[in-house]
Design a protein around this nucleic acid. Structure first.
Lengths: 343, 343
DNA sequence: TTGCTTTTCCGAAACGATTTGGTAAATTTC
DNA sequence: GAAATTTACCAAATCGTTTCGGAAAAGCAA
């Protein structure tokens, strides 16, 4: 801790020959409070002295005294996923605007790490939490019930807890609608982690559409596994090998879709020609790939900002409702198919 | 702040009928301190009571009293870049292991934001800083000189300040060596931001090799611009348009390289066939692209861990030296060229 | 001038821990 | 058995801030 910062309210009070409680009221409150505490001239004197000396209140002393840390804990599965990093950027900037202090921890989707990060947040006396790493398991739900700190879920939902999410079912439906309209009847899904609402709903929106259209997707064409490149590669490989008639793959994550591109290449298939491929999230490089990747876009940065806003409203004691944002399918070359006539 | 956590040293002392200073010594110190403060039986009594009641010391009270926050500020250009997110993951996990509390802010390579984030870190009374967003400008160097908080630079270096970096010149040299050995004489560089040591050195290592080999690269074949996909696309487009004889592009960042893939595609070139392409960082998807991207791998997560370690050593008052890690070229399909004979 | 209100400021306690400097009791030493 | 030492614990100050409850001073009305 910086030792040279000895500019405290006491010091200012001494220098100006007034009581430190007066200085505190002037520097910590708004104009109304300040002018109730001191005359116009004194307020001005204190403020200008504090400004020239670069006074910053000691946040630990404030947290200690007020029992409010202005600290917001954020837990995400990982930061190395573009989506989570972007959501956190939105959270952090919004928190900073409001004078709060956000920090982020990663739990790598491991329940024991989630638990540890939460214990740590409690130990750090956070005022509120934003949880991005929730599972839909009973264990996770019980865990949320037991929380006595205000919290908001982000991106992933669980139970009926307050959350900011995207309409994942709708995103899946949009992807299905497009592929079906193009004539694809033999499709497969890389469904992501099955214990996450995103993995579940992005998949369900897609499979529901096909079922309602009278062409239910066989269960073995839906694989739930990790959202990353490697998982996408391995599982796409299995799907392609098991089903030579396959004409389209929908992955609930761009990285899984890129992995699927690799698998397609290995199998002699060309995305956009002999295999239609749709991803999810519209990461910035989707558009830049040699074969541009069609994908379902999500407003991720706004999602982070809104989650932080919602938590602030909750902390202020307002009645709050969950927020659902709208995704949008962005069709690019990989979604097409020209190898033969499908209909 | 969680109100229910009323388990303080005072409370424990009251319950057990002993003085709270004794409780403090037992719970805060190591075994030696504890047993000097109380009898074996009392120590055990205090510890088990604290454990069953889930006592966690109030970190704000400790920071306030000891003037040591155990808080580490980390500043990076952006988290949505895989490299920075991974470095931060390494920093955070290492900090946590040592009982420190790391937090990260983003400055988007804007000097005024860097300054604001630093002021914030001082206001938060951090014990130390890890700076990943430094520029090599005089302004940045002056700024570092004026810092009176222990700090370590990460990934990017500046002046002779303590840092953990990768040998960027060597990485550039490895890329150049490979392309030269394959017969490429007409090459271009997407050099990244020119005010960063990474942009400068990854470029210099490459151009130095070509100069030493007697084939200096014309200045207009080296473009310094942002590290992202879009920047890579635009500048590769310009290079390809301006120079039809170009056979290889070296980009100091995978995202820029992926952007260049997009530009190549638009120009009717095929990476790995009619344009050799090498990126930098080995992001996980480089290997999974439809045309796998050759790239210079960096040990980024260890870099974050070592930066945190180094800062701990600095905080402990040890004499420290900067650390340089070794990169390694990973050759993949995009680095080849088969359109015609080059030699 | 007197009494009342408002303005302006002061005094003191509190938040939860650490830490210096004790002292009474127990134990050891001679 | 008295002195010396160690053990086991207590007392009190302190860190920087907020905040409740006054109280002196100033302004105002009569």
């Amino acid at each position: 801790m910086k030792k040279s910062n000895n500019c405290t309210v006491r010091f200012i009070a001494e220098q100006l020959g007034i009581h430190f409680s007066t200085v505190s009221r002037v520097l910590s409150g708004n104009d109304a409070v300040a002018h109730k505490a001191a005359s116009r001239a004194t307020v001005e004197k204190i403020r200008s002295f504090a400004a020239t000396r670069g006074y910053t209140p000691n946040p630990h002393a404030i947290a200690f005294r007020t029992q409010q840390s202005r600290l917001i804990g954020v837990s995400v599965p990982r930061l190395s996923d573009f989506i989570w990093a972007t959501i956190y950027e939105g959270i952090e900037d919004t928190a900073q605007e409001r004078g709060y202090f956000a920090y982020v921890t990663t739990s790598y989707d491991k329940p024991e790490l989630q638990r540890r990060q939460l214990d740590l947040a409690v130990a750090r006396r956070v005022d509120g939490l934003i949880l991005g790493d929730m599972h839909t398991t009973q264990e996770s739900l019980d865990f949320l019930e037991s929380l006595d700190i205000p919290f908001v879920l982000a991106l992933r939902q669980a139970g009926s807890h307050l959350s900011v999410t995207c309409d994942d079912r709708d995103g899946g439906r949009q992807a299905a609608e497009f592929l079906f309209s193009q004539g694809h009847r033999d499709v497969a899904v890389l469904g992501g982690l099955d214990f996450t609402s995103t993995g579940q709903n992005r998949t369900a929106g897609f499979t529901d559409f096909y079922r309602e259209a009278g062409r239910p997707i066989p269960p073995d064409r839906v694989i739930h596994a990790s959202f990353d490149t490697q998982g996408g590669h391995e599982n796409a490989q299995r799907l392609i090998a098991a089903c030579p008639s396959l004409t389209a793959i929908y992955a609930v994550n761009d990285f899984a879709a890129i992995g699927a591109m690799g698998a397609a290449r290995d199998a002699g298939l060309v995305p956009g020609v002999s295999l239609a491929l749709i991803g999810y999230n519209d990461t910035p490089l989707a558009a830049e790939l040699p074969i541009p990747l069609a994908t379902v876009w999500n407003p991720v940065r706004p999602l982070g900002e809104k989650a932080m806003d919602l938590l602030f409203r909750l902390l202020a004691g307002e009645a709050c409702d969950s927020i659902v944002l709208k995704p949008k399918l962005i069709v690019r070359e990989s979604a097409y198919f020209s190898a033969r006539n499908l209909l």
